[in-house]
């Protein structure tokens, strides 16, 4: 199917969002955020794929051979770094939250209601 990868990407985003909305544990929530992000990886890389194309590395292949789109690979690389850093920061917040409140359950964090 020629749109399956895109549907997979959309599915990842939606499943991750479901996880975040219904999460009972902050670590689980942050992992679901990573799932949402991997949906964006999939859509980017799927867009860049070319049938019959090889990796855009010309050390062993002559320039001019059909390759996949390199820009989406660079975009995905940036996306990965961004996601990793946000995850690191969120996990630090989760660690500190557990240290201060003893819980990781969003339902029990009621400091900001109202």
């Amino acid at each position: 199917m020629s749109v399956l990868p895109y549907f997979v990407a959309a599915w990842l985003v939606l499943v991750g969002l479901y996880g975040i909305a219904t999460s009972r544990n902050l670590i689980h929530l942050i992992a679901c955020l990573s799932v949402v992000q991997s949906g964006t990886y999939v859509v980017l890389l799927a867009i860049g794929f070319r049938v019959g194309g090889t990796a855009p590395v010309f050390s062993d292949v002559a320039p001019g051979t059909p390759t996949v789109d390199p820009i989406v690979a660079a975009l995905t690389l940036t996306d990965v770094v961004v996601g990793a850093t946000v995850t690191a920061l969120l996990l630090a917040i989760a660690v500190q939250t557990h240290k201060r409140t003893g819980t990781l359950d969003p339902d029990e964090l009621r400091e900001l209601a109202g």
Binding site: V3, A46, R50, I71
Partner: peptide, 15 residues
């Protein structure tokens, strides 16, 4: 996503 080109057949891009 249905508006995207078929998987593997993207048009000319900057890449």
């Amino acid at each position: 996503v249905l508006g995207l080109p078929r998987f593997g057949h993207t048009h000319d891009t900057v890449g």
